[in-house]
Amino acid sequence: MRLSGVWFRYARRDPWVLSDVSVKIEPGEIVVVQGHNGAGKSTLLQLAAGVLHPVKGRVTDRPHWVGWVPEHFPAEQPFTVDRYLRAMAAVAGLPETEASSAVQIWSHRLGLVQFRQTRLAELSKGTAQKVGLAQALLVAPDLLILDEPWEGLDAATRDQVPEIVNEVVHRGGSVFVSDHRGETARLPGATQWTVEEATVTAQTPEGVAPWIIEIEVPAADGPATLSKLKADGHDVVRVKDQRAARHAAEAEEPA
């Protein structure tokens, strides 16, 4: 799936949440998008899911089956867990027997069996989030979009998220995850994107050699630059004092 030159804002006079974003997600790829609160992570995910439409630019090659787990599951609905999941499976186009089987499988896997006859509005936040996760998995998704999937889940289900992600990827699907809790370590090998100041920056996946960029700054700015780079999360590999190097070079030159 590809986002090409995508611009988005929620209203005409609002500032751009995303500006000129061009990124792509390959089949079998896991992408974790990070950024501070309000940076535009959920907006980016919703554009990928087809919930939002770009003001400018295009989203192309979106896979047929998309599973979207919103950050907050809408539990204020007059249905039981079982009725809701069956209805969602039917909306997705599953025949009744397949829908029933899918609901049973995911209810078991996510520990929802005891809540199947409970009304959605009576569920705890964590259990409601599990229902949100289940509805996205009833049809095996080609693209699974998880908005802060670790938020509100119990420890056992948090541990299941990487397992589910890997299952999707092994089937050739893609997974797009937002994370502001620093749970990325649970998804080794994931491509990292950062949303900041309305742009998306892609970082190198773990296990691939990082770039080493040399920069030159005035000596007086050295300490401040070092501090800023470290604060931004960069690894400072080497600091070279040019004057010392030049002196050394001059000393070595024959008179």
Binding site: A49, V51, G67, W68, H72, Q77
Partner: peptide
């Protein structure tokens, strides 16, 4: 009658707004 997020979930499941 349905929450906004549920309407959006329906859009994703149907694959068409």
């Amino acid at each position: 009658v349905e929450p906004d997020t549920q309407r959006q979930l329906s859009v994703v499941l149907l694959g068409s707004w």
